[in-house]
Every structure is written in C-alpha cells, then in structure tokens.
C-alpha cells in the first residue's frame, strides 16, 4: 500500500436524486481512468476503485451519502478536484 490517503483526499456529498448510480459512476470512472495513480471512493471506510463502475455501485450510495475521494499520489489532486466538482454538480443531471 502506498502513502496515507488522508493527504490527498476530498470530501463530497452526493446531491443528485438518483445517488451514485450506474451512469454517474460511469462519469467518475471515465475521469479516474485518466489518473496516474489509483483513485478511491470511500464510504464509511469501505473503499471502491473509482475506475470501476461496479466497484462503486457496490457502495450503494444514495442521495445524501457522504463520500471521500482519495488518490494514492499527489499528482492526481486535479483529478480529485474534477470528481468532487462532478459530484457536487449532481453529475449534471
């Protein structure tokens, strides 16, 4: 495992009605796949690979869920910002 994730993490609350569903997860995955390191979505300590829709769906995040997005390396801080913005905008729905 790499360095402690707290350094490179952001918090966000799911605001869209449908929650983190397949299509919104797909949008996150698309961004996460361009990252240099692994990007994680964490809910109540449970970690999901942000490049995997299925992994994220397994977290079953509904509207109002608080999640943490973290990256293994600091280079990906920009990716985290983009994902955070995406979540906060309700995935443009």
């Amino acid at each position: 495992m790499s360095s402690s994730p707290e350094k490179f993490s952001k918090n966000a609350v799911i605001v869209n009605e449908l929650g983190l569903h397949a299509r919104s997860a797909a949008k996150i995955a698309e961004i996460a796949r361009t990252a240099k390191s692994k990007i994680w979505v964490i809910r109540d300590g449970e970690k999901a690979d942000a490049a995997s829709i299925i992994d994220m769906l397994a977290l079953a995040c509904s509207k109002g869920t608080r999640v943490t997005i973290s990256a293994d390396y600091s280079e990906d801080i920009e990716i985290l910002n983009r994902i955070k913005a995406l979540i906060q905008n309700g995935f443009g729905e």
């Binding site: 797909a26 995955a29 690979d49 829709i53």
Partner: peptide, 9 residues
C-alpha cells in the same frame, strides 16, 4: 454506460 462497463476492471 454499457460501453464504459465493458472495460470495467
């Protein structure tokens, strides 16, 4: 969404 799923790890 399905297209993205195809490449899901």
């Amino acid at each position: 969404t399905h297209a993205v799923l195809l490449k899901d790890k």
